[in-house]
Structure formats: structure tokens, C-alpha cells
Computed example of a mutant assay.
Amino acid sequence: MTSGEYPTAKVNGEEIPYDPDVLRKIQEHPCYSEKACHTFGRMHLAVAPKCNIQCNYCIRDFDCVNESRPGVCSKVLTPEEALVLVREVMGKFSYIKVIGIAGPGDPLANEETFETLRLLKEEFPVPIKCLSTNGLMLPENIDRLEEYDVGNITVTCNAIDPAIGEQIYSFVEWEGEKLHGREAAERLLAQQLKGIEMAVERKMLVKVNTVLIPGVNDHHIVDIAKKMGEMGVYTFNIIPVIPQYKFAHITPPTPADKKAMHDACAPYIRQMKHCARCRSDAIGKLGKDVQDEIYRNCGSL
């Protein structure tokens, strides 16, 4: 099913799926609706420290309270601590509509993710459940995610050509082995595409994040957007690379570069243009985080 095959209704001038549950997952999710980001908030539960791939732009061992980027959190929580935090936040901030797990590693590489989702289903069945992943273990876990009511999934896909992918990933851990080079890129891509296909078949809302890396995949972004649109991905988020780790030498894209890329991709898939590159423990509205206040006052953590 492609993104154009969902039954639609016009909301805020845009044709979107009209199923009430699907509409809620769009209209109340600040990443899926630019209007929602001004009204509704999200909270990320940092329960997933381990990662099963190494991206050449990713560092997860540095935390600055003023830094907003994926992979950063002040404390990794146990599932039980996460539940305490959710109780605290949901009791104070009625505008929080989304509970997500986005790291600081890959959620699907951590069994704590599923224990957290189980606890949430028992006590907080109503908020939108969201998960971000590199997609490596998505096919094997798609049924568990559906069981725990995860309706919004983000997959980071930086290349659909393994020749480009091998420039972006140092290694991929697969079935107890570390894969490198082309083999690693091919395995990751195959799993990403399969997982996205399975999620769309289950009518989950899928967002794809693509890191824009000048000189590496910038000439390839439109190809990714075309492919994701054909697969039924709901929205496409272009994230300018943060120069660090093995890509510390790269000059990041300018806002004008990013806009031009959005414009080039827009004919093929909806564009998310308001990404705040959230931390793994972000709480609040996009750009108006309150996690520092929450963590200071939540004495049970």
C-alpha cells in the first residue's frame, strides 16, 4: 500500500487518512503534524543503551544539558523507573500525548524496551506509543511492537544503495558477528526495507529519518525519498549531519541546503520540516523541553 492508498479526509487543508485512530496518531503527534508541535508534547524514555550498529556520525557517550541531538541522555532508566517518570509527567503535563523510546542506543537491541512497553500497556494504554530504530531488528520485532500498541515508528535510513551505505556505517552486529563494509550495508538495508514494508502492512504510521551528509549521500537523498514514498512511508525527515566522530571534518548543510533538499523530495513524500533533533530523554513540546525540571523534582528516579 502506498501513502496515496489510505482512505483520506481533508484536515487543515491536507488530505490525510480518516480512520479515527490514525488521525489521532497524526494530529496529536508533534513529529507527524507541524500544527501539533505547538499544542502537544512528547516524552522519550531513555531505557535502551545498547546499539547494534555504529554510524560514522554518532557519539553516544557525551551529555551536555544544553545539547539537543539523538543519542544524548542524562540517565539511562530501568523500565520500572521509566514508569515512575511517566506517572510524574502525565500527572503534571496534560499536553503530553506521545510516549516514545528513542535510545540512547537502538530500542530494538534492548529487551528493556519491551518490558517498558508492557508496563505502559498495563497502566497507560491511551497515549500514542512511538519508537525510533535503525531498522536492523524491525522485521523480527514487528509483531511485538504491534502487541504493545506501538502505532508510530521512525526508521533512520541513510542510503538505499549499499555502495553509499558502506561509507556511513563502521559496522553492523548481526547474529553474533560484526559485519563491515558492503556486507554490513547490504544486511542493514535489507532489514530496513523489510521492516518498513511490514510496518506499513500493519497500518502503522512510518516516518523515515535521513541524515544529510554532504559529499557522502547528498546526491542520493531524492532517491531515498522516492523509494519511501512508493513503500507507503507517511513522512520524510531530512536531518543535517552534526560533524563528529568519523565525520567531524564534514561541513554541515546550511538551512538553504536543507530547504532545497526538502523541495526536491516533496513531490514524492510528505516532508517533516520542523525536527528539533530531540535528545533520548526529551520531555515537553518541541523546542520547549522540561526534562531538567522533571528529573530534578522526581525523587523516585
Rank of each mutant, 00 (worst) to 15 (best):
A185E: 08
S132D: 00
E183A: 15
T156Q: 05
I99P: 12
E146Q: 12
V155Q: 11
V155G: 07
P125N: 12
L189P: 06
L189A: 12
D63L: 03
M137P: 03
I99W: 07
E146R: 10
A82H: 02
D143Y: 01
V72A: 14
L120I: 08
T116I: 03
G71S: 12
N158T: 08
E175D: 14
T156L: 00
E186V: 09
E177F: 12
L83F: 04
R118C: 00
T156E: 01
L179S: 13
P125S: 13
G71K: 08
A199V: 02
L138R: 10
G181T: 15
V200T: 07
K97F: 01
L120E: 05
E122R: 14
A190G: 12
G181A: 14
R144G: 06
L131A: 02
I142S: 09
I128Y: 08
T133L: 02
V200L: 05
F114V: 01
C157W: 02
R87P: 13
P125M: 11
K129M: 02
A199F: 04
T133D: 03
R182F: 14
M137Y: 10
L189H: 10
E122Y: 05
F114D: 04
C130G: 00
L189N: 09
E140G: 11
L179F: 13
L83T: 10
Y57V: 01
S68V: 10
R69Q: 11
V89H: 03
D149M: 12
I153S: 02
E147K: 15
V150I: 07
F114S: 05
K97Q: 10
I142V: 14
C58E: 00
H180D: 08
I142W: 09
P104G: 05
